[in-house]
Amino acid sequence: MSNKKPVLEVRNLRVEFPNRRGNLVAVDDVSFTVNEGEVLGVVGESGAGKSMTGSAVIGLLEPPGRIAGGEVLLDGERIDNLSPEAMRRVRGKRIGMVFQDPLTSLNPLYTVGRQLTETIQTHQNVSDSQARKQAIDLLAEVGIPAPEKRIDQYPHQFSGGMRQRVVIALALCVNPRMIIADEPTTALDVSIQAQIIKLLKRLCEDHGAAVMLITHDMGVIAETADRVAVMYAGRIAEIGPVKDVIKNAKHPYTKGLMGSIPVVGHDLERLSQIEGSMPRLTEIPRGCAFNPRCPEVFDRCRVERPDLIDVGTSRAACWLHDPASAKKTEAAE
């Protein structure tokens, strides 16, 4: 663990969607921290609750979704109970956001320059020409060639990769403490993805910002993140340093996930597969949510829900790593 200051702390976060038949729990008891200059990867399959966690942190949950419990702290200060107006200011000034589809995050009717200067002037008291100069510097920083010329162009005149760079520049406008990137490379081709990953990593180092990188792609995590949280059915299944989680997974779900990813250079007749699919939110099983698909399931998993347990440098929500259950299985044998 680094001794750097935590920028974002999430404690026991719970997100619910009330509906006619009761509450759907989309995110359940999720806790993590992101430190200065650190990239935390949040990975999981569709429906795992990773994007929902991101939206809850920045206060952009779609109603009727709501935070039903827990706390979100930015630099030690609670932000989950702020008024919408106060939260809007926090989002603009201290949290930057990068979403999957760069075309929908940019206004097609305004030039890139106008969108950048508008953001800069909302949060800083600077003149038009200063704001424009800052905008050009930002575009140059994110690697857009000829920024003096490109600044007066519209989003449709940019390619997909270049648009995503503009979105990143927008997120950086106000020197945020925290950047939340939700699937920033998913809509891009591999060669562009590699460039954007490199850019994100460099910016995180240069600006000392904390980054929460949400993605379904373990490869992107391996390239970018310092630590990674693996989510399953609304909970964190495993969290730890990226090397440990990828090379020496502790949770059976993480193991299965890693085994199912094809890798160039691995000659396998068959990929190892996890049977079945992730449960719907309405039918999350009792005990550990992964127990019906788990190859190492035992009695306790079907009854009791495991919390995160320290295993070496990582933490995993799995009874296999609880000393008490180890004794029990030995006794049973």
């Binding site: 390619s159 081709d189 591999v190 060669s191 590699a194 460039q195 890798v263």
Partner: peptide, 24 residues
């Protein structure tokens, strides 16, 4: 070669890669 070098390095071998430039 460029496509192969652009694949994320899941095994974190830190193999030497020629950086990818430009767009289609």
């Amino acid at each position: 070669r460029m496509l192969l070098d652009a694949i994320p390095d899941l095994e974190m071998t830190g193999r030497k890669r020629i950086p990818v430039g430009g767009e289609v």
